[in-house]
């Protein structure tokens, strides 16, 4: 019953986003060109780097491309499914329209997370998949079905981590209005996820492992596809994703409570 209810809600909201996107059909072309542009842009440092070296921190060009492809895919999902909704919430909080969301008899986190999609960003994801295929052609082998399955599961876990972090950032908007800048901050840190995590050392390693677990978002799913991830590490990723999701939910609820006790 509850599940069916939320499935229906999701369908209605997704349809509204699609209808909106259809009104701006020219964006399809613009988005396609932009996707291509950034795809090429992303490759520049990779090409410069591997022009001089065969491997960097044990990663060959092909393997690094697999990580890059994951980055492009995850970034596409982030920009297409997560940022628009959460950006909309921050806007709603500022304009006061968020009050209407709170007065609807459905989970507020669900309502805001599905409020807006940018369907054209699917082109980014498509570009990422293309890059992924190219990377494996270059590597000269295809992932086994088991590796593919593990890769998808870990990709799901990575997306859950990312979504959790973003929810926590949005929750801060209840306390500090105009903190949408924090979303930019996280987006810009996320840019580092285009590189295999093991390339970084020292301070970066600590930050990218414990503060913002970028490795979980792109490197581990990529390694699962490449068949270089252990069972223990895989399970570690899943546990990490679960933990981040739980913490995000708690932070959200806390923020909501403070919103309804302190704002006007």
């Amino acid at each position: 019953m509850r599940l069916g209810y939320y499935a229906r809600l999701f369908a209605v909201q997704a349809r509204a986003s699609l209808t909106t996107a259809m009104q701006y059909r020219a964006d399809f072309l613009v988005q396609g060109l932009t996707s291509l542009y950034w795809l090429g842009w992303n490759l520049v440092p990779l090409l410069v780097l591997y022009d001089d070296r065969a491997t960097v921190a044990g990663w060959s060009f092909g393997a690094a491309l697999v990580v890059m492809a994951h980055f492009v895919i995850v970034r596409g999902i982030l920009e297409g499914a997560i940022n628009p909704s959460l950006g909309a919430v921050v806007e709603q909080i500022r304009s006061g329209a968020f009050d209407y969301t709170l007065l609807r008899p459905a989970d507020a986190q669900f309502l805001v997370s599905t409020a807006r999609f940018a369907p054209w960003r699917a082109l980014d994801v498509l570009g990422g998949v293309g890059l992924l295929i190219y990377a494996f052609v270059r590597l000269g082998h295809a992932p086994s079905p088991a590796q593919l399955g593990a890769g998808l599961v870990l990709l799901g876990a990575g997306l859950a981590v990312m979504y959790g972090l973003w929810i926590m950032i949005v929750a801060t908007a209840f306390w500090v209005v105009r903190m949408d800048n924090l979303i930019y901050l996280l987006s810009s840190v996320f840019d580092a996820a285009r590189w295999p995590a093991s390339v970084f050392r020292g301070v970066w390693k600590v930050v990218f492992t414990f503060v913002i677990p970028l490795a979980l978002m792109t490197t581990f799913p990529a390694r699962a596809l490449l068949g270089t991830v252990t069972w223990q590490a895989g399970i570690g990723c899943l546990v990490g994703a679960l933990l981040v999701s739980i913490v995000a939910r708690l932070v959200w609820r806390l923020a909501l409570r403070s919103y309804t006790s302190a704002s006007s």
């Binding site: 509204a16 909106t20 609807r104 459905a106």
Partner: peptide, 14 residues
Amino acid sequence: DLPPSETYALNRAV
């Protein structure tokens, strides 16, 4: 950006 009927559909579901 959408007609009010879409909001009605949403509220009906909600």
